[in-house]
């Protein structure tokens, strides 16, 4: 019952988010700010995680294909596909749900409990749209770049770890990452990223927007934002994979 009610409120909030902005320029400037806060500031964590995960994926693939009947370039190929198909979209989205989601929920939640949202409403500003739309637009546009960065850096991490550990030569790794490359996989990965970005921004925005009470409730909302975003990301990962790859 409560679940249905929340879902209803979530879609009602979405309706308010997508109404016409009062002043386009103010929203534009706010979106530029969010590019920096939610996008540029996430590059660091994405790069670090991608390098290490790429490295681990390459090494694990190597140790699982030690049988001489497998050609060595399979390591490059395997690393590439795993990173593109699953890691750089889904794993990165889960990590961003933690970083970006909690920051969105706590920022908006704090504005709610300190009456800043009421202050916006009193001025005649559509607070739902003003607070959530710029964040949504910024993540929808920027997260695909984060995914591309993650793919590139992840494959580099795999190459580095593989050659440094001596499990594969640089030539076969590079041959492997070019072998039987399916460009559609990139499209698939980017489509997932966009859907996940939508989930992170709107679910976290919703959790922050409906906070009532005090700072304790803001903390709870930000935990809920991360948990629900992650569950929805995993759910939609299954759905999208079935839709896009079958």
């Amino acid at each position: 019952m409560k679940f249905l009610e929340s879902t209803g409120r979530y879609f009602m909030l979405l309706g308010r988010v997508f109404s016409r902005p009062e002043k386009f320029y103010v929203y534009y400037r706010q979106t530029m700010k969010e590019f920096e806060l939610l996008g540029i500031n996430s590059i660091g964590i994405v790069v670090v995680i991608s390098v290490f995960m790429g490295a681990v994926i390459a090494l694990q693939t190597a140790y699982n294909t030690e049988n001489p009947i497998y050609p060595a370039y399979l390591i490059g190929l395997g690393t590439r596909d795993m990173i593109i198909l699953e890691f750089s979209s889904t794993m990165v989205a889960l990590i961003l749900a933690g970083k970006v989601g909690s920051s969105i929920a706590s920022e908006i939640g704090t504005m709610r409990v300190t009456e800043q949202i009421d202050a916006l409403e009193i001025m005649g500003v559509n607070s739902a749209s003003y607070l959530i739309l710029p964040k949504l637009v910024a993540t929808l546009i920027f997260n695909p770049f984060l995914t591309l960065i993650s793919i590139i850096v992840g494959i580099f991490g795999g190459w580095f770890a593989g050659t440094a550990a001596g499990v594969i030569t640089s030539e076969s790794f590079i041959y492997g990452i070019q072998y039987a490359f399916i460009p559609y996989y990139i499209t698939y990965s980017l489509i997932k990223t966009v859907v996940f970005a939508f989930i992170i921004a709107t679910v976290s925005g919703f959790q922050g927007y409906i906070v009532s009470g005090g700072s304790l409730d803001v903390g709870r909302a930000s935990t809920k934002a991360v948990v629900y975003s992650c569950i929805l990301i995993l759910l939609f990962n299954v759905i999208l994979t079935q839709l896009l790859l079958s």
Binding site: T114, Q116, D118, A119
Partner: peptide, 9 residues
Amino acid sequence: FQGSALFDS
């Protein structure tokens, strides 16, 4: 507002 409600950003 009772708590001023200035936008803190």
